[in-house]
Nucleic acid binder design. Structure first.
Lengths: 229, 229
DNA sequence: TGCCTAAGTGTATCTTTTACACTAACTTTG
DNA sequence: CAAAGTTAGTGTAAAAGATACACTTAGGCA
């Protein structure tokens, strides 16, 4: 029983996923994950993996679903890796997948015990990952898109505290993978009144500086039901 | 590692959940579930539980999520039951919850090996269930509501092959737990063209007989993307 | 000073959602 | 066989929301 985390990060242009390279087993890329300890909840377990990897706690984390085909381990290198790492290498591996949203600004991934390298990879250009991790990423992305459409809150998890409307729109375009009309997008968010304008503008940009906003959590709490029903 | 199934059934008026009474352990009510066998996928496992209980296969079944608090077993009777039934009673119990939709018409539940009684209970009047099964049901209902709003297909899983618009509306009202305007409801479904009218009307009813419809699967396949994005 | 870039803004059209009340068809009862 | 009871079936107007679309402005840089 393990957890695997699909950790999404937005760099202002593209949507990325955090990928590790395994300590043992010939440079196979994989999602960060670990065995679940006996005395922790599933959520705790995912939070631990995340913390060991990013040093961040209290970030958005949600269970996706469990994956557990008996034959999800088909690649020889996966088998090899299990032999090195697990006490019972032949034991059935069921994993609970989580997806997580982090803000790239306050983030510096550090290799944890279970990884020899950590890096961001653009979600639309992922190579082949270990086990069924590509399938897990696809599912996570699907879920992220659904959530983003029906609950604007989660978009803000991927952005810094203060941001411009352009950044917000680029985020939506990266996740939904299509362009959006600028005026309509702005209209929607400004009439929803989810944004508080700050007394601050961009500086040093070679064009008209944009207004900074922050997310209005109080307002959101009052109207969020509307987004769901 | 086990699966537990939240099996929803609609009786024309209320939304019900299939509840079993355990063979051992003092008449505690619970969701149907079983341990996952070594060589089956998670989906297979849920299907097996469902088949043993209802005799039905090929019915709508979808993974909800995993539940696995170390202390989800708090009730003494739950502990007792585990002692009787499991080889390692103290082992951590993680369960993968599924939810399923069945049509009450072609259904006759029969007590399976793991149950001494099976019955339908209205979802809004459930008593206390074993473990964290009440939480699981709540989650399943939430998921069902979301799905119903964005994918009309799943509503039809709960109805017989042919049905009237009234039945369909009652189903929506039961799941969403609020009333819906009749004219607007009918308009929505009729303009979506998801229904094929049959050459058949209700018979023997003490009021104007209603038209029977069936679900137009071909049409649905062509337009379903619209419902999701 | 001119050029480049992204910010910021309004309107008209179309689509979707909502609110709302009467007639029609059948069975049962007196 | 007439009246009462019950659900089927139907349309329209108003409001809200979604879409398509183009120009001016503020700053940096050459």
């Amino acid at each position: 029983m393990s957890v695997d985390c699909v950790i999404f990060g937005f760099d202002g242009v593209r949507l990325n996923v955090l990928i590790i390279e395994r300590e043992q087993g010939g440079g196979v890329s994989a999602l960060p994950g670990d065995l679940i300890l006996d005395d922790e909840t599933l959520d705790d377990s995912a939070n631990r993996v995340l913390y060991e990897l990013t040093g961040l706690s209290d970030i958005y984390l949600k269970q996706l679903q469990a994956f557990g085909d008996p034959d999800r381990i088909k690649d020889l290198r996966d088998v090899q890796w299990l032999r090195n790492v697990r006490e019972e290498p032949s034991a059935r591996v069921i994993t609970i997948a989580y997806y997580s949203l982090v803000n790239l600004q306050n983030f510096s991934p550090k290799a944890a015990s279970f990884a020899r390298d950590v890096r961001w990879e653009p979600v639309y250009e992922l190579g082949e990952l270990a086990f069924d991790h590509n399938v897990i990423v696809d599912k996570a992305l699907e879920q992220l898109r659904l959530n983003l459409k029906y609950d604007p809150l989660i978009g803000f998890e991927l952005l810094p505290e203060k941001f411009t409307l352009r950044q917000l729109q680029k985020l939506y375009e990266a996740v939904l993978n299509h362009t959006i009309d600028k005026r309509n997008f702005r209209k929607k968010f400004l009439t929803a009144k989810l944004l508080k304008p700050l007394n601050e503008k961009e500086q040093g940009v070679p064009h008209k500086p944009a207004q900074y906003y922050e997310f209005d959590r109080k307002r959101y709490m009052r109207i969020k039901d509307k987004f769901w029903f």
